[in-house]
Amino acid sequence: MYGIGLLKGLAVTMRNMVSPGRQFTLHQYPDRRVGLLGLAKQANTNLVSYVLREPAMAAKSLIGLATVKDRMPQHPRFRGEEFVWYEERCTGCASCAKYCPLGIIEIVTHPSGDAMQEGEKYAIDVFDIDIGRCMFCGLCVEACPYDAIHMGSGFEESTYVREELVIDVDRLRSAPKRPSTWFRPQLEGKGYQPLDGQEVSWKDVGRHQMPDDSELEDRWAKR
């Protein structure tokens, strides 16, 4: 009969509308408006204690002004902005600059005088990354022999001026050390989540255990 196909299609759309397992997940980025109940749920308490604890927020929610952050789950391997750079690990070899397909990393160094063997160390004068042209392929991270540079997890660094998109060495130094686990399997096994907010020290991000000073001296003396 003509029209059966149409009815079948309508049945599908109806089922998708009502059955909870098939509904679309709606995310209202960056924040979702919530009522009092939603706020209490977000704060993991019940309604009464929430009102008592945060009366201002509760009042806001009554006139529809309270919001909570609405984020999609993000995987720790996510390749994002906010490059994480560990100055202690960096020797200034500029491998990252050489392997960048777009040539957007600029490094200027001078001999620092310390650690003259085992990955001789240079002091960094300039370390610029133009993330306005970066495509986040992560080849710099893959190329780094000392695990000094890591991808970040951010994606909200938009600015009005292109100049502000150039990350300089001071910004790299002060950036939060929350590396993405992309091409860093050593971070993956530990159950580390970049979005949890915990920072990783430079001693823990290497593929190999960092040798201590006495061990290094032994090694260098043999040469």
Binding site: H75, R77, R79, C137, G138, E142
Partner: peptide, 24 residues
């Protein structure tokens, strides 16, 4: 794909000789 290689569209997952990293 985001789990595998940290990106959704511009993946760059494969390398000459294999893939860059094992699946999590």
């Amino acid at each position: 794909f985001e789990m595998l290689c940290g990106a959704r569209i511009t993946l760059s997952y494969m390398r000459p000789g294999g893939v860059f990293q094992d699946a999590p």
